[in-house]
Every structure is written in structure tokens, then in C-alpha cells.
Write a protein that binds this DNA or RNA. Structure first.
Lengths: 230, 230
DNA sequence: CGACCATTTGATATGGATCAAGCGATGTGG
DNA sequence: CCACATCGCTTGATCCATATCAAATGGTCG
């Protein structure tokens, strides 16, 4: 199904963790900034698995460049994407021992890796760090709730919401370059690839977006997109 | 829309909180058991609002008896139910300052109420309490992820999953008494009331369930229900 | 008994899935 | 440099699961 090319990868050097260094705990506001300049770099090729569903959750990851999807294969063979992670985003942090979804690099992707045990044990000593973990998980919770609400909307609304979300997350201007394929988008939105494609074409006809190439999107009218998102 | 009957309610007595008493912190495994015997009791009538969406999240609640739904009204007027909370369940705990959903009693419901500030300030001093909050939110995250996965399945699969979930949560035997209406179920599953009703009738024909009355369900074949849940 | 409300059942409509073909970009071998 | 295979995407035709509209049924409470 996936071309799981096991690249020769940078070895994990778990020494450089939060535990061994004694970093002044993360700043109050944002969670887990202590991760900014640490962790071992790892590179993954397109569609390469980073971890599998129900594998032990030994590491936590931060996207440096590229993009990551988490997903689950449903019993009927369809794939549901749980989230996209973009540069700066942290993923793979679980409270329990196992990952709930698998994670795959979308294109060539660089991440930094941290030992979960280091993060957790830090939280056992430092309440502020513990709060950062709580905040992080709460943000994930909020994201999944929004995703859940997306899945009960019409195809147009789902696609429009998706484009607005991606624009917020990875574009300063009205132009954006999607890192993921139509199939990825479809599996994220709970639609088929054909429906996503048709819907985008419709948005072009409505002058809500421009589509200079299949992965380049120009938001021509955020207002229209937002109104669709009824 | 809702018969928001403001009952004369027991006054909240915020003195009896975790903060003022110095409770030996919650046991390691389960989160927030310290709530078991504390908090002020409050009673709500059928369909009464407990808190509204985007109200300040001043309190945390534990269901004593009855049942609670959290929900959001979508811009097109439909209602999406985010969760059902049953006796023993905790709800209304947010990291941020505002509730993300509103909460309503389904039937006559008794809850116990805690000040959020007490819970949070406890976590600032006690890492184990902080971890309990993290664990609680992670469990909510997991629940919402499952709910999200439910919304991309067929109507039969959604209803079957719902019945199995409810059976796990509120029945020791194969008989269960649903606290919520068909409309509530429909709004939880992202279906119409007619589809829920038809699907249940179909499950009766298939001898997967019995339906002695509309809210009494007998699980005749968990196996069939689980297999539907493909 | 009669009104009311929740639920079920029936008839029809429709949005998105499915099946199938065409198109454009990219890469490969002759 | 061109013929051609491949791959991701788009477009077209048809089908089907669920929504919608409408009516019948049944339980509850005055």
C-alpha cells in the first residue's frame, strides 16, 4: 500500500534530552518550547512510516520541515487521517503507552525526536512542565473536536474549512502550497478524491479560489469560503 | 428552543473544595477521584442548561445521577452532540477560560460542582494532581477521536457502535435503559432521527437487538453488532 | 377520552460514492 | 528528441445511502 522505503537514517541520540540537560522550564504561555533547539534530527522520505498504530509511544516528535499525517486504517479498508502536522508542530505525545494512530511523512520530512520518558519524568518534578503537557493535550482535544464538527458538514463546507485552516497554518499571503495529495485531503475530510476534486473545481467556478496547479491554491475570497462554512 | 426552567437550586458552597481541605492527593491510577465525596450538589430538570457555550468555565461537574449531553448548534441550525456523560463521569473541565460546548441535563439530573480554580491551583502545587488533569484530558481526547472515527462510518455501524458503547457504560447485563431520546442519539451520530429509528428497526429484524420499548434495548447478539461495526 | 409528543413507517429526493474515461505533467528508453 | 508508460488529478455517467417530507402509531398525562 505504501512505499515504505527504509532510508538510512540519522541515528537517534537519546542523550540530548530534557532530562539530561537541566533546561529552565518552558515559558508559561506556550507549551513545550523547550523543544525548540533540542532533540535528534531524523529525515524521512515520502510516505515513510514514522511510527505505527499501537506501537509503544517511546518518542515525541517536532516537525522541522515537510509535513506529517497521522492515520488509521478502518476495518473496511478506508483510511482516515487524524491530523496534519506542519513545521513547528509537535506530534506523537501520548499519555498512554501506545500510539493511537500511525504517523507518516507526507513528502521528504525532517523531524526532531525526544524521549517520551524524559518529557514525562520532567513533568513529575516540575508542575509548570506538567501544565504544559496538559495544555498541549487540551489543544489537541480542541483540534479533534473541530475536526469532528467538520465531518458532519457538506462537502463544500469541509473543503472550504480545510483550505481556510491550511491557509492560516502555512501561508502569510493568499497563496498556499499544499504539501498533501488530493487523496490525503479526501481521507482527512471523510470524502472521496473525486468529490474533493469536483468541489475545488466548483470553488474555482465560484471565483472563491484560484488553482494555478493542483497543489497551489490562491484564496480569492475568504469571505465566500467562510460563508460556505455555514 | 430549550425549556430552560431556572429551578430554585441548591446554592453553591465553594468552601468545600480541594484547596481548602488538604486531601491526600488522588490515587495514582485514576484521575480526580478526590471528587468522589465532595462538591456541592445541584439538581437540574429535563433539558435544563447547565452551562452555555463560551461561558466562563468556572466550574467542573461530576454526574451523580441522570445524564448530561454537551452540544453545539451549527450555523445551519443543526445540533451536534459532543458527548454523553453518565453517573460517575466528570465534565466541564477546560484548560482555557471558556466552555467549548454547552451542557444540558437530559432528564432530571444531579451533579456535584467544583470550582475550577481550586482544581487548577492544586495542580500548580502538586505534580501528581497535574498529571491527573493531563490524564483526564487525554481520555477525553481519546473519546473524541473515537467519536470522530464513528462519523465516517455507515448508519448501521454508527448505531451499532453507539449501542455497544452505551451497553459498556451503563449496563451490567444485556438489557439497557437509554437515558436519551432518538433525537439526542441522532445528533450524537450525525444522522437524522428517521435514520436512527429505521436502523434500530432493521437491527430488530436481524435479531441483533430487542426493543421492548423505545428506550429499552436488549442486546441479543453483541457479535452481530460488533461485525457490523466493520 | 382526547391532546400531545416521541417514535416509527412510507414515499420521494438528493448529495456524494462508485465506476469509468480523459487529461496533463513527469520520467524513461529507443 | 520523441514515443510511450505512469501517476495524480479531473470530469462524466450512474447508483445508492441517507435526508427530507409526510403520515400513521403508540405511549403518557390531563
Amino acid at each position: 500500500m505504501l512505499t515504505h522505503t527504509p532510508l538510512t537514517q540519522t541515528q537517534i541520540r537519546p542523550a540530548a534530552t530534557l532530562q539530561s540537560r537541566n533546561i529552565p522550564t518552558a515559558t508559561a504561555g506556550g507549551a513545550l518550547e523547550a523543544f525548540d533547539l533540542m532533540g535528534s534530527p531524523m529525515t524521512y522520505g515520502p510516505n515513510e512510516e514514522i511510527y505505527g498504530e499501537s506501537e509503544p509511544a517511546e518518542f515525541v516528535y517536532r516537525v522541522v520541515s515537510g509535513a506529517v499525517r497521522t492515520c488509521k486504517i478502518l476495518n473496511d479498508g478506508r483510511r482516515q487521517i487524524g491530523a496534519f502536522y506542519l513545521p513547528g508542530d509537535i506530534f506523537g505525545l501520548e499519555v498512554g503507552k501506545e500510539h493511537q494512530f500511525s504517523a507518516e511523512a507526507i513528502g521528504k520530512t525532517v523531524v526532531r525526536v525526544f524521549r517520551r520518558s524524559a518529557v514525562v519524568s520532567m513533568a513529575e518534578r516540575d508542575c509548570e512542565a506538567a501544565r504544559a503537557l496538559w495544555t498541549f493535550t487540551a489543544r489537541e482535544l480542541h483540534r479533534v473536536q473541530e475536526h469532528m464538527l467538520l465531518l458532519v458538514k457538506s462537502a463544500q463546507q469541509r473543503v472550504a474549512s480545510f483550505l481556510l485552516e491550511m491557509s492560516d497554518r502555512l501561508a502569510a499571503t493568499d497563496s498556499l502550497d499544499l504539501p498533501m495529495s488530493r487523496q490525503d485531503i479526501a481521507d482527512y475530510l471523510g470524502l472521496t478524491i473525486e468529490t474533493v476534486s469536483r468541489t475545488m473545481s466548483q470553488l474555482v467556478s465560484d471565483s472563491a479560489i484560484g488553482l494555478p496547479s493542483s497543489r497551489k491554491i490562491v484564496l480569492r475570497s475568504r469571505r465566500v469560503l467562510r460563508e460556505l462554512n455555514a
